[in-house]
Every structure is written in C-alpha cells, then in structure tokens.
Amino acid sequence: MEARIRENRWQHSPHSVRTFISKNKAGQSKTLLLKPAMSAWKYKKSKLKMRRPEKYTMSNPFGRDLVIRMFHVNKHYGAKQALVDLSLEINQNEFVFVTGPSGAGKSTLLKLLYRGEPVSGGQIIIDGMNLGAIPDKRIPMLRRKIGIIFQDYKLIVRKTVFDNVALVLEAAGQKQGLIQKKVRSVLRIVGMEDRLDAMPPSLSGGEQQRVAVARAVVGDPTIILADEPTASLDPESARIVFELIQQFHEKGATVLIATHDLEMARRSGGRLIRLRSGRLENDTHMSDL
C-alpha cells in the first residue's frame, strides 16, 4: 500500500475501519477514517455522506506508529492532584508497564485513556482521536479500540462466559455467525472453551480473569489496558493471565499494564513508566535497567 501511495499510509484499526493518513504537498497531514474495502479514489469520488475527517481527529505529524499521545495531562479530584503535567508517547505494539506506589495515579492514567473520566487539563490523543474533543456519543467508538482488563474482572454475573465475551461484539453490531466463531476461538485461546455456559461466580479467580482477557481481546483492539490484572490471583493463575496478555501483544496490540508487580515487569521486558504522586518519575526500557 505504501508503495502505491508514496506519501500516504494505511493503518488498520479494529472493526475493519482503516485509518488513512494523508500528506499534502505542504507536508501537512490529516487522518481519514475509511470504510473497509473502499479505496482512496472511491472515497474521493463518492457522493455519499462518508465519514469525513472529524473535528476531533488529529493530524499525526510524526509519521511514526504513535498510538497514544498525552500532552501535559492533569487530573485532579477537587483539591487532590491525581496526575500532574504528564506527557507520554506510546508507539504501536509497545508493551508498557505503569508502576508506582498506591495513589501514584496508575489507575487514573488508565481511566483517562479509555475516557472513563475527562482530563482536567492537557490533551490525550488515541489512534487519532482527541479525547478532550470527542462528544459523549463517540466514546463507545473509542472503547471499541481498547480492551480493558480490571483487577476485579468486571464480568456480568448474570451472563454466561460466552455471553460476557460476546457482549463486546454484540455492542459493535457484529453478525451472530461471526460472534459465535470469534468468541469460541478466543475462549479456546484462553483455555475456557469448555466453560462456555458457566456463570462467572462458579469460576475461580484465575478463570474469571481469563474470561476477562478474552473479552478484552475479542474485538481485536488496538490497545489493551490492564489495571492490576494479576493482583488478586495466585502465582500460577497470574502467570497464565500474564502470558495470555503477552500472546495478544505479540499479535500486534499495544499493551499498558498498571501493576505493583515489578517482578512481572522485569520478566517480560518492555517499557517501564514509573509514577509518583501523579508525576512521571521515570520512563525507561527494561533492557536499560
């Protein structure tokens, strides 16, 4: 594709919506979202009301595979500062650990990334979307690009394992045939294919977290956010869950894990972002340590 359009670049995002980054003669770039199987030519010729570059999409002037950009982000809850002037850039397919003591702002950082809460100051750009500018009704679109894993699993107790995982695809409006296929496939990968009809309360913590991982990845997200994913698990379950996350990272996802578990971070390599009192204390690569 790059050979065909010299100055333009394609990015594949979940749900087959391709991001077309176009550079004009002046060197300015803009991001377009295109429907699948539609060429740039068709896009330009089409008289249909297509999804034009939206006001909350941002140009990506760096030409790199930046997935997350944070510009001087602040977050406060009343008088309490949770994040202070945080600037970060995270590339596609990076494996990032966010560590720090309790109250350092790890979970807050993740919450801001999936727009669980708005920033108090600064800007966050995820996959070309400016989170400060997107209207509320577009938040689901953002979240479909992100798979989230929580410490407390957040599975719906009244739904079966299958239904919990299928929910992501149902919410994205996928067809039943595809849902059946993908959910079974992902549950096979996480080793839960024989517990499709089980209800979450009947599963162990490790099993529930494996289902949560399956739910996080079933929509082929660009980014996986995990907030203390192994904190409530026994070492063996923690290892399995962590290996699963690594497995999906190898398939191309960008992973951000907020954790206290430095040992896990050390074992896996990757980038280590250390926060203290909401400030960036250290941003390094494991190999540099």
Binding site: P140, M141, L142, R143, I156, A171, R215
Partner: peptide, 16 residues
C-alpha cells in the same frame, strides 16, 4: 447498574 457500566466499558452505545 453494574452491568450497564460494564456494557459501557466494552463499547456499548446508549442505543444498545
């Protein structure tokens, strides 16, 4: 309430 919150987290729109 909790279920709806989870639905929103996984990308469910209000219509859904």
């Amino acid at each position: 309430k909790e279920e709806i919150e989870i639905m929103r987290l996984v990308g469910a729109a209000n219509n859904f």
